[in-house]
Structure formats: structure tokens, C-alpha cells
Simulated assay, not measured.
Amino acid sequence: PAEGPAGTASGESAAALLSQGLRLLSVEDNPFGRVVLNTILTELGHHAEFVGQGEAAPDRLAQGAFDAVLMDMVLPGIGGIEAIKRIRALPPPYGRIVIVGISGRAEDEAAARAAGADGFLVKPVSPRALATALHEATRRAATAT
């Protein structure tokens, strides 16, 4: 089948993916941050799996069927920028998955986008901002395929 908007092989439109809920890989080392993100994502109808280190993201991504990645920029070990670069180096469809960077520092946005992030959010993340970022990133990915 044709590759979908977020790197899946489903061929579904961005609107269809968002309406049924995205499968998200969230790279977040802070337990409180995980609870907040998981609460917001669940309320938005999405399903998240969490890993706590940037090194784990490419391997976990290649093992599961995910529609997008939420990438914290400040992580133990390799940071979010390097993790994004490693994901982008994966073969298709994994390397083309939608990635939204998240940081408490707005100045991280340029580096995140330069590394390959499709979107960027500044903490604290609101439900509306997260929903908008996921919608915009998956819509752009759908029109790029």
C-alpha cells in the first residue's frame, strides 16, 4: 500500500488519522512530563508510548507502528537534536515519520527544525497547542507524499 502521511503504510489521510487517534512515540525523561503529556494525549484521543532516552528512540521506532514522535530536546545521554538526526537516518518509512520537538527553551526550535523536526512546542504544552502541532505536522507530511 501507499505510504501514509506519517510514515505508516496505511495510506490514510491526516484527518482520518487524527480522528481515530495517532500512535505516538514520546521521548521524555521526566516522569512528571510523561504524566502531563499522557493525560493531554489521552484526552485528545491519541495513544502514547514513552521512552526516557534519546538513544532508545530510533530502535523503538523501528520496532513499532507509530504515526509520529514527540521529542523532548533535553535528555540524558544523547539529546533530542541527535536523536532526531538518528531517526532521520533510518530507512523509509521510519526516517520520514512526523517529529514534533518539545522544549522548555524556545531557542531550541531552530536547531530542532534544522535536525529535521516537523514542528516544535515550548513547555508547558497546552492541549490546544499539541493538537494544533500534530494536525499541522501530519497535514504537511500528507501533502509531501
Score class of each variant (00 low, 15 high):
Pro1Cys: 12
Ala2Ile: 12
Ala2Val: 14
Ala2Arg: 14
Glu3Lys: 15
Glu3Cys: 12
Pro5Ala: 09
Pro5Leu: 03
Pro5Cys: 12
Ser10His: 14
Ser10Lys: 14
Glu12Pro: 03
Ser13Ile: 02
Ala16Leu: 11
Gln20Cys: 13
Gly21Pro: 08
Arg23Pro: 05
Arg23Ser: 10
Ser26Gly: 11
Glu28Cys: 07
Asp29Tyr: 10
Asn30Ile: 07
Pro31Thr: 10
Pro31Glu: 12
Phe32Arg: 15
Phe32Lys: 14
Leu37Asn: 08
Leu37Ala: 10
Thr39Trp: 14
Leu41Glu: 13
Leu41Gln: 12
Leu44Val: 09
Leu44Trp: 07
Gly45Asn: 06
His46Arg: 06
His47Ser: 13
His47Lys: 15
Phe50Met: 08
Phe50Ile: 07
Val51Cys: 09
Val51Ser: 07
Gln53Glu: 12
Gln53Met: 11
Gly54Val: 03
Glu55Tyr: 12
Glu55Trp: 10
Ala56Asn: 09
Ala56Cys: 09
Asp59Val: 09
Arg60Gln: 08
Ala62Lys: 08
Ala62Phe: 08
Gln63Thr: 13
Gln63Phe: 10
Gln63Met: 11
Gly64Asn: 11
Phe66Arg: 02
Phe66Thr: 01
Asp67Gly: 00
Asp67Tyr: 01
Ala68Ser: 07
Val69Pro: 01
Val69Leu: 09
Met71Gly: 00
Asp72Ala: 05
Leu75Gly: 00
Ile78Trp: 02
Gly79Cys: 05
Ile81Trp: 01
Ile81Gly: 00
Ala83Phe: 01
Ala83Ser: 08
Arg86Val: 07
Arg86Thr: 07
Arg86Pro: 05
Arg88His: 03
Arg88Glu: 02
Arg88Ile: 02
Arg88Phe: 03
Ala89Gly: 04
Pro91Met: 08
Pro93Gln: 05
Gly95Ala: 05
Arg96Cys: 06
Arg96Lys: 10
Arg96Gln: 13
Arg96Asn: 12
Ile99Cys: 04
Val100Gln: 01
Gly101Asn: 00
Ile102Asp: 00
Ile102Thr: 03
Ser103His: 06
Arg105Asn: 15
Ala106Met: 11
Asp108Leu: 04
Glu109Gly: 07
Glu109Ala: 14
Ala110Ile: 15
Ala111Met: 07
Ala112Asp: 05
Ala112Phe: 08
Ala112Ser: 13
Arg113Leu: 15
Ala114Leu: 15
